[in-house]
């Protein structure tokens, strides 16, 4: 099949960007979306145009490195990551608009690459259980009911891709943050720091320029790992409790 691509190009953070149009022929439906861009990049290179910068690493839907706005939807039309999207989701003659994540807290680095360092800085503010290496008790001394363990796992599958932020009209990272709060809050090991964790992470979130959550739900719809919206309720509940405890 043949597709027409409108792609955002921007030399660096300081410069202005603009949309450029490219055509790609001979696209096979077995290609992944990123392989289709690889093909385009080979063609650009051959005609002395600088290839388009976009991020990816595992190409297995797990590292969270990839992430493109495809026709206005983060990661495109399917519930998956950009790297796992395949061209069989498109048809011959389609026009596809490709942009980077748009959010104040994720400045564009180049073309389709953005800086998601804000996520790491949120985790630095308590997105962990404080246990030094070697200080851990025997694993079976901690029992976790299967239900809690499963729920902790389900939300711990967040890959930190940032699609939730890109999808949110407010540019909020509440889903990302709620996933971490819920993961650690479900587990007995996570209780000691439960209050301080939520207070510090939320403060960092706001400081980074992410917006507030107004319960629109676009985040969950865009999330490739289907992190449920109720992690945000959990986040708010934990925050209220912490504040009541005087944190």
């Amino acid at each position: 099949m043949k597709v027409t691509l409108k792609i955002w190009r921007q030399p660096d953070a300081a410069s202005d960007g603009a949309m450029h149009t490219y055509e790609v022929d001979d696209v096979s439906e077995d290609m992944s979306f990123l392989e289709m861009l690889d093909v385009l990049n080979e063609q650009l290179n051959a005609r002395d145009e600088e290839p388009i910068a976009f991020d990816s690493d595992c190409r297995e839907g797990i590292c969270g490195m990839c992430g493109l706005m495809i026709n206005g939807e983060p990661h495109g039309p399917e519930v998956t990551t950009t790297c796992q999207l395949h061209m069989r989701s498109f048809k011959d003659g389609d026009e596809i608009v490709i942009e980077p994540w748009r959010a104040d807290a994720f400045p564009v680095v180049k073309d389709l690459c953005v800086d998601r360092g804000a996520f790491d800085r949120i985790i630095q503010q308590g997105g962990y259980i404080s246990v030094n290496t070697g200080a851990a008790p025997e694993a079976h001394s901690i029992q976790v009911p299967k239900e809690a363990a499963d729920r902790a796992f389900d939300v711990a599958t967040c890959i930190g891709c940032g699609a939730c932020v890109a999808a949110c009209p407010n540019g909020s990272a509440s889903l990302f943050m709620g996933a971490k709060i819920t993961h650690l809050g479900e587990l007995p090991q996570g209780q000691a720091e439960r209050d301080t964790r939520v207070v510090s992470m939320v403060a960092q979130h706001d400081h980074e320029g992410f917006g507030g959550c107004t319960n629109i739900g676009e985040c969950t719809a865009a999330c490739p790992k289907e992190i449920p919206l109720d992690v945000i309720s959990q986040l708010n509940k934990d925050l209220r409790t912490a504040l009541q405890h005087g944190h």
């Binding site: 962990y128 259980i129 246990v131 290496t133 070697g134 200080a135 851990a136 008790p137 025997e138 694993a139 079976h140 901690i142 029992q143 976790v144 009911p145 299967k146 363990a149 499963d150 902790a152 796992f153 711990a156 993961h183 650690l184 587990l187 090991q189 996570g190």
Partner: peptide
């Protein structure tokens, strides 16, 4: 064996049986 202890303490959500053990 120390690795499993360490990871559990960190909150790594390993698969568990119904009794709550790994």
């Amino acid at each position: 064996t120390n690795i499993i202890d360490q990871c559990v303490a960190q909150g790594v959500p390993f698969a568990r049986e119904y009794g709550g053990l790994l």
